[in-house]
Structure formats: structure tokens, C-alpha cells
């Protein structure tokens, strides 16, 4: 069954077609969400939300772009929503702690170890993920899509709905910012 036939069946709410769609693209959706969220539970939660939205709004997919591009867009948008919600919760917890309503101390998130990173790179990758987390949203998205999903500039441009030169600029700025963040990190350690 090709992609078109699969989508046509999915538009008819066919369960088997939905199962095939999930099993084909779950890795891609999960890996992208994991790169952006840096937390396995959050990534699984977001991946589920992505497929739920795919099932509900498949009729709005006009087949002007590739199905995977559409999926990437939903994944990025859901993951960024999740980050925003988490930040809001953190801010609220901080305000509560100021008024003494929250007795628990603010817990720093633990280092994130991506399961796909080579053993010898684990420690450095955890430091890099921390630096990536400090990047502005657009730079972070472009960097994760490029490094963890191996997407080309053109594919990233399609997902982020911008030009290839804009993606190039985003990645250049991301690299500069990462160098700056890492330098600060190593200077603090020293």
C-alpha cells in the first residue's frame, strides 16, 4: 500500500490504516519530540498527542506537502506547546515558593542522556543538550531537526515554512550561541 492509498483510508477513519501510519512514523515523531523535550515521558506523551491530532484532522491535510513534513510540523508545534506549558508551571511554582506556599525546593532537571548517543559521547552529549535547551525556539528546532533527524536544509525549510537561507542563518546563529553557552559552562566548572 502506498502513502496516498494509506492517507485515503485514514481519511475514512480506517483503524488498520491508522495502525500502519502510527507504526511507520512513531519513531520519527518520538525522536523529534525527544530531541526538543529532552524527557522520555514527555516525548511519549507528545507523540501520542501528535497521532491523536493526525487521526482527528487528517481531512485538513491537503497533500500539498509530504505527509512526513506535515507530521514534523505537528510534532514541533506540540513539543513547543509542551515546553511553554512546563515553563508556565515552573514560573507558577516559583511565585508560590516566594509566598512560602510551596515548601518543596525548585528541582533542577537531571542531565538528559539520549539513548541514541554513542557510549563514549554520552557525557559530552548531555552537556550539549543542556546548551541546546538554552537556545531560542527557532534555532533549537532547526538544530534538532538537522542533528538528530538528519534533515537537509531544504527539508527543515519545508517543516519550518521558511527559506533555505533562513535555515542556514538559524543554524549559524545556533552554533555561535552553543559555543558561547558551552564556554560559559566550562568556565564555571573550572
Amino acid at each position: 500500500m502506498n502513502e496516498r492509498e494509506l492517507i485515503a483510508l485514514l481519511k475514512k477513519k480506517d483503524r488498520e490504516a491508522f495502525k500502519i501510519v502510527v507504526e511507520t512514523w512513531q519513531g520519527m515523531v518520538y525522536n523529534t519530540a525527544l530531541g526538543l523535550l529532552q524527557n522520555m515521558e514527555d516525548a511519549e506523551d507528545t507523540a501520542q498527542e501528535v497521532f491523536m491530532q493526525v487521526y482527528e484532522s487528517i481531512l485538513s491535510f491537503k497533500e500539498e506537502s509530504k505527509f512526513s513534513t506535515w507530521l514534523y510540523r505537528i510534532t514541533v508545534s506540540k513539543a513547543l506547546d509542551h515546553i511553554r506549558k512546563k515553563k508556565r508551571k515552573k514560573r507558577f511554582a516559583f511565585i508560590q515558593s516566594l509566598y512560602g506556599k510551596n515548601d518543596g525546593q525548585m528541582i533542577e532537571p537531571p542531565d538528559f542522556f539520549h539513548p541514541g548517543v554513542k557510549m563514549e559521547n554520552k557525557e559530552n552529549a548531555a552537556i550539549l543538550f543542556k546548551a541546546v535547551d538554552q537556545l531560542p525556539v527557532n534555532q533549537k528546532t532547526a538544530f534538532i531537526l538537522n542533528k538528530t533527524e538528519n534533515l537537509s536544509y531544504r527539508e527543515i525549510a519545508e517543516v519550518m515554512e521558511c527559506t533555505e537561507s533562513a535555515v542556514d542563518a538559524l543554524l549559524q546563529r545556533a552554533k555561535k550561541n552553543l559555543q558561547k553557552n558551552l564556554k560559559e559552562y566550562y568556565e564555571k566548572l573550572d
Partner: peptide, 17 residues
């Protein structure tokens, strides 16, 4: 150190749920 950290994503494998 910075260069090593930036290269640590090289050859990263995709994670699955």
C-alpha cells in the same frame, strides 16, 4: 572541549518509543 561537545551528536542513532 567545546569542539568535542559539538561533535558528540555525530553518529547519533534515532530513539524509538
Amino acid at each position: 572541549k567545546i569542539e568535542e561537545a559539538l561533535k558528540s551528536f555525530d553518529g547519533i542513532e534515532k530513539a524509538s518509543p
